[in-house]
Design a protein around this nucleic acid. Structure first.
Lengths: 220, 220
DNA sequence: TGACATTTCAAACATCTGTTTAAAACTTTC
DNA sequence: GAAAGTTTTAAACAGATGTTTGAAATGTCA
């Protein structure tokens, strides 16, 4: 039996702990991964009881799925694929904007930004939550870079070639984020602040532009 | 008190289980990662008792460190950076050989080849074992690609530019391996057999050659 | 053969983990 | 204000995990 009447305070309390659990668990999941994260640590950071996760989300796995999805959507909303792109942009601008917003998205580490770390872990150890993401939000990103690449290669380029070249662009962005443990051990001076990210964006755009413009002429 | 005398059978028995433990644990560590791997599973596959890991290696962590190091060294020995490179090779050949042997190394999945998977996990969740690897064996690889890049960019290129371009090459190789869960979900037809790896090597070499040859002319 | 060393073994230990439970605290509704 | 519904709480549960232990088995060597 459901009561439709006014129950503001209860709803507010429910939403409050629900939200605190989401925030806290996003933090913990990003820090140590799904498996190593404990519901005890999550609940402690959320200021909630040990049973809160099961009461509000059913189990740890469904909590994680919700965390991953919202982190992805939020990051894509904060840094859209066409972030600040002028109406009649050149193809060079389109590539640069794609690369820069992608970098900003994965490197963003604000209190509500865990998309980069969470996705990096999904790459190595995928969970069930990854499937729905790939086939919904991620597809649009793939289309965006494929269109840019096709315009640069010329429309006679095969689908496979566009795909490979698209991945060559994407790979460069992900490398700096996902392989940071190795990079920072090998080049300890390398930092990843806003200024450095801008330099990275410039390099990746330049490297990729040179490659795509001269791909057909390059002998193997 | 140490006996120096003939103790062949004991030594053999020791070395045998020691080796079986290394093989079995390499398998398990590669499959599920350090944390999710259980010594029970490892010992079962090795046909050894639960206490074998602690007796032979002290603890799980030291076993892992030995597994990682030997896997890396073995892979680099099987596919050296200059794998089949002729004496007076062109710069194009040097790049292609670097890319191909790198791909073969990370994608190799024989019964004794877990280097790729182990290192992919190290990237996301580094253990203490990574430090020693980076500063020994990995440094040589970095030098190899840096030399190739410098020769292609011209010797006036700055150290930072060579570093960035070197990483742009490396990133493409690692992407196809490390991000395979996403790739195979997005493009289910894509396979990674020997033939496909050869095509990948050709693409990455071609893309990178076009980029490096025209890097200085590319406007941003 | 018998004293000693090494390796293997089954069992137990201590700890940690996600989840469940049943009662308590709180809120809403009438 | 009392009944009903909702959320929180502390405690317990059941299973898994790395490690330890002390005895048994196996090998070495004088």
């Amino acid at each position: 039996m459901v009561r439709q009447a006014n129950k503001a305070k209860l709803d507010k309390a429910h939403a409050a702990t629900h939200g605190r659990l989401l925030d806290a668990s996003a933090e913990v999941f990003a820090e140590v991964g799904f498996r190593a994260a404990t519901v005890r640590e999550i609940c402690e950071r959320a200021g909630a009881n040990i049973a809160a996760v099961n009461y509000h989300f059913g189990d740890k796995e469904r909590l994680y799925a919700e965390v991953l999805k919202t982190a992805y959507v939020r990051a894509l909303h904060k840094y859209p694929v066409d972030f600040g792109l002028p109406k009649n942009a050149t193809i060079e601008q389109r590539l640069e904007v794609f690369v820069r917003s992608f970098l900003l998205r994965v490197f963003d580490e604000g209190p509500h930004s865990h998309h980069g770390k969470l996705m990096a872990r999904e790459m190595i150890e995928p969970t069930a939550a990854l499937d729905s993401i790939v086939h919904t939000v991620m597809g649009r990103q793939a289309q965006a870079i494929m269109n840019i690449v096709r315009d640069l290669l010329g429309h006679s380029a095969t689908e496979e070639r566009c795909r490979l070249c698209g991945m060559s662009v994407v790979s460069q962005v992900l490398f700096y984020h996902n392989c940071r443990p190795v990079i920072s051990r090998m080049f300890p001076t390398m930092k990843f602040g806003p200024k450095e990210i801008e330099r990275l964006a410039a390099h990746i755009t330049r490297f990729s532009l040179a490659a795509l413009r001269n791909y057909s002429e390059a002998t193997r």
